[in-house]
Write a protein that binds this DNA or RNA. Structure first.
Lengths: 134, 134
DNA sequence: TATTGTTATACTCTATAACTATA
DNA sequence: TATAGTTATAGAGTATAACAATA
C-alpha cells in the first residue's frame, strides 16, 4: 500500500535525522523550529508558526523548551508591541547549523543515488495533487 | 529544503486522509491500526505492532480506544495463552474498509497524474538509501 | 474589530522500565 | 530465559476555546 510505504519512509527519514542529531537532545518539532529560522538570527512567532505549519498554542510549548535550554530568547518586538521576536543564541545558532547540515547531508545522499530532481518532481506533483479537491 | 518539503507533503497527505475519514473520528494511529489488518478479521497484537512500527505499550492505548468504540475486540489466543487475538467487529470492518478505500483513492489519484511508478521508485530508492549507514 | 501570543483543558502519542503470565 | 502484552510514569504533540494586550 503506497500510503503505508510513504509513512514508513517518512519514519525512516526522521529516524536517520534524529540519529545524526541525537546529541542535541531535540524533539522533531524543536528541530523544525530551529530549521525555520533559515539561517536568520531572529523571527517573529508568527513567521515561525507559518513556516512550520504548527498551531500557535503548540509553538508556545516548543519555544518554552528551546528557551529553557538556552537555544533561543524571546524579546519584545519594537515594531509591534503585540508581537515577540525570537532570537537564536550562540548555542542555538550552533544547533541550528547542525540541523541544516543534517538536512543538507540527506539531500546530498539522495542526489547521489536517485535520478536528478526525481524526488523534487514527485514532491511537487503530490503537493499540487493534494491541494486539489477530490 | 527537501526535508522540509517532504514533511510538508506528508502533512498534507495525512490531512487529506483525515478529511476523507473525519466522520469516523479516528486518530492517525487508530487509522493505521485498522489498515494493518489488511482485510483479515483477526491479528495478534504482535503482528499489528510489527505492521505499524509502534511500540507495544503505545499500541495498548490505541487498542483500548478502538475497543471502547466497539471497532475491535480482544479475545484469548487458543494457540498461545500469553497472546491476545484482536478481532475486527462488524462496525470495525466497515471502518477498516473506509480506511483502505481512502488509501486506495489517494493512490489512484496519484497514478492518474504522475508518471507510472515514479512515486514507488522514489520510495524504494529512499528506503534502501536510508537503511544504509551514512 | 482583528491580530499576536499565551493560557487552559483534555486527549493522544512516545519512550522507558517494570511487571504478569505464560512459553 | 525469553516472549506477549499491560501498566506506570513522564514528557511532548494536537486541537479548541478563551483571554489580555495591542493594532
Amino acid at each position: 500500500m503506497l500510503v503505508a510505504d510513504w509513512q514508513h519512509v517518512t519514519h525512516r527519514l526522521l529516524a536517520v535525522l534524529d540519529d545524526e542529531l541525537s546529541d542535541l537532545g531535540l524533539s522533531a518539532a524543536e528541530t523544525n523550529a530551529l530549521a525555520a529560522f533559515g539561517g536568520g538570527a531572529s523571527r517573529t512567532v508568527r513567521e515561525l508558526v507559518d513556516a512550520t505549519g504548527q498551531r500557535p498554542s503548540t509553538f508556545t510549548g516548543v519555544l518554552d523548551r528551546l528557551e529553557r535550554r538556552g537555544l533561543i530568547e524571546r524579546r519584545p518586538n519594537p515594531a509591534d508591541r503585540r508581537s515577540v521576536l525570537v532570537h537564536v543564541t550562540a548555542t542555538g545558532a550552533a544547533a541550528a547549523a547542525r540541523v541544516t547540515g543534517a538536512f543538507a547531508d540527506v539531500e546530498r545522499r539522495i542526489a547521489e543515488r536517485l535520478p536528478e530532481g526525481e524526488v523534487r518532481r514527485v514532491l511537487a506533483g503530490l503537493e499540487s495533487l493534494l491541494d486539489e479537491p477530490a
